[in-house]
Design a protein around this nucleic acid. Structure first.
Length: 265
DNA sequence: AACTTAGGCAACCGCTTTAAA
DNA sequence: CTTTAAAGCGGTTGCCTAAGT
């Protein structure tokens, strides 16, 4: 479903927003089947990467960003098509509760699903589902606890598509005090399909003051169950392996709950 | 049947981070 | 050390379609 405003062509700009003087006008909007084919063939032949120069090399009148996005979200052969399954939805909910809006990290746990797809699914389905259950879709905490935060916006023409509290809180952030790659930023994107355990753990940044999120207690409990103790800030001292195991446990939470007679968290 | 409204989602935007020069 | 290019991410936009009136 390619829907985007037709090529605006309002002033040729580079993909980074810088003005370009004599570059041919870049095409925007929905991709055609022909463009898809050109891109797919080129990537199959040359491999991913060097997105900035790819359009010129491939003969596409698109910006590199657009090409990358199209490949990542649509053309990649390992993309899983079709509706989100119930177990996938369940997993998204669990992961979001822990990770917040880190869509790429969540996507890394759902083989074949893209961050964009999950983000869209969240905004259009799951956030509303939580609201209907009386839960804040951002914190997964009861909405009733927050005065003024009542009905979700129903008119997207007058409200942001994402349900957000009036005073945004920092996103839930888990910390990994010992991660060797902690804080290495965002390009350690998980490769959807590989599970992304290491990258996921590595991508988590360290900040004790952020450890007030809504997955913190989950991780703390999990860490405690593994004999890991909190530091002076109350943060569990977990390493990558522990964190990865923790996430794995989320994926089998039903089993976990059954084993430990623990209710849904 | 015609019109309006709401939902879904592909694509774009702007920013951040990292690596290379 | 500083600058710049490249890549990736989350947020947002806006078109299309289905459902409702």
């Amino acid at each position: 479903m390619a829907r985007r405003k037709p090529p605006a062509q309002h002033g040729a700009r580079s993909e980074d927003g810088q003005a370009q003087s004599t570059a041919p006008p870049l095409k925007r909007g929905p991709w055609t089947a022909e463009e898809d084919e050109v891109l797919a063939r080129f990537v199959a032949r040359e491999g991913e990467g060097r997105w900035r120069t790819l359009p010129r090399r491939a003969g596409l009148l698109r910006c590199g960003k657009s090409c990358r996005l199209r490949w990542m979200n649509y053309l990649r052969p390992d993309i899983k098509r079709g509706p989100i399954a119930e177990d996938e939805e369940d997993l998204i909910l669990r992961l979001h509760r822990v990770l917040g809006n880190r869509w790429s990290l969540i996507a890394g746990r759902l083989p074949g699903r893209t961050d964009n797809e999950i983000k869209n699914y969240w905004n259009s389905h799951l956030s509303k589902k939580l609201v209907a259950q009386g839960l804040d879709p951002r914190t997964h905490m009861p909405l009733a606890a927050a005065p003024g935060k009542t009905a979700a916006p129903t008119d997207k023409k007058t409200a942001a598509p994402t349900v957000r509290p009036p005073q945004p809180l920092p996103p839930p952030a888990l910390v990994l005090p010992t991660s060797s790659a902690a804080g290495t930023g965002r390009d350690g994107r998980d490769n959807p399909g590989d599970g992304g355990n290491d990258d996921l753990a590595a991508a988590m940044s360290v900040d004790a003051h952020d450890f007030e999120g809504f997955g913190d207690q989950l991780l703390a409990d999990y860490a405690a169950s593994r004999g890991v103790f909190n530091d002076v800030m109350g943060c569990p001292m977990v390493d990558d392996d522990t964190f990865t195991s923790f996430l794995d446990s989320l994926m089998n939470e039903r089993q976990l709950a059954a084993d430990h007679k623990v209710g849904a968290i």
